[in-house]
Write a protein that binds this DNA or RNA. Structure first.
Lengths: 129, 129
DNA sequence: TTCTAAAATAGTAATGATTACTATTTTTAA
DNA sequence: TTAAAAATAGTAATCATTACTATTTTAGAA
């Protein structure tokens, strides 16, 4: 794989934010620095980076993929009401994946754990209505 | 929500199979019984059933949603090479979700845990090449 | 440094899953 | 039996993502 400024900037950007942006959001941000950036280039490089294991793909319950530069073992909590996305860490999650690789004799390429929730705030708001 | 034969058949079908079919696959199967069934009706009812918590939505890494009539707490293992989907059960998974609801004081509406793997067979096949 | 083939890009067109729309049919409760 | 509410079939529209192509960039050899 040859070097490209576009790919470097995409990876850099994903490492710098905790917002789990979509391809479109990444494009909108980076076009400020790279004025002739193409959306297709963003998609292609996100796919390259994902395939290489250099970024994570987060599939929430909405119709758009999100991307994450944080490679540590973690899951995501998405509020179905306000849309907020939070990271979640739990040693049990590591345990599940380790057991799985042993029991099935398989190699995990990537994982995606999403909890679609009603967050504390939104739950309280509903109660007041 | 009023009764509809279409919705009943969709739910029935999902309870009877372990294949995690797509909307299109469900449509192709049920049109044998309901000759004028519409794909839009399948999508609408899948969404109804999912929102009511009567079926699960499985989001693998391909671009198509899959559906599951098995409501027990389980995850899915998808081989990136041969496409095989297997169910996985682990008490740790229950633990993660229980802890999450307590710690964040939130209500889990649905969950989706996918492991994208190279299964045992495909791993061996690669080795031989 | 110059040259060249391979790989990447920008810009645009195509794809395909899903959703929206509307006239018609079905359900359900009075 | 009837009428309003909800569901359906069939079709059109949407929109995230992928494919395509002419041009540009990269990287290694001369």
């Amino acid at each position: 794989m040859k070097y490209s400024k576009q790919r470097e900037k995409i990876q850099e950007y994903l490492k710098s934010v905790k917002t789990h942006p979509t391809a479109n959001q990444i494009y909108s941000e980076l076009i400020k620095e790279i004025p002739n950036l193409s959306l297709g280039t963003v998609y292609r490089n996100l796919d390259n980076l994902y395939t290489q294991g250099l970024i994570k793909k987060v599939r929430t319950y909405d119709d758009t993929d999100r991307f994450d530069g944080d490679l540590s073992m973690h899951y995501h909590v998405v509020c179905a009401c306000c849309g907020k996305i939070e990271d979640g860490f739990d040693e049990y999650f590591d345990n599940i994946s380790k057991k799985l690789e042993q029991n099935l004799d398989c190699k995990i390429l990537s994982d995606n754990l999403i909890f679609n929730v009603l967050c504390s705030k939104c739950k309280d708001n509903l109660r007041r209505k």
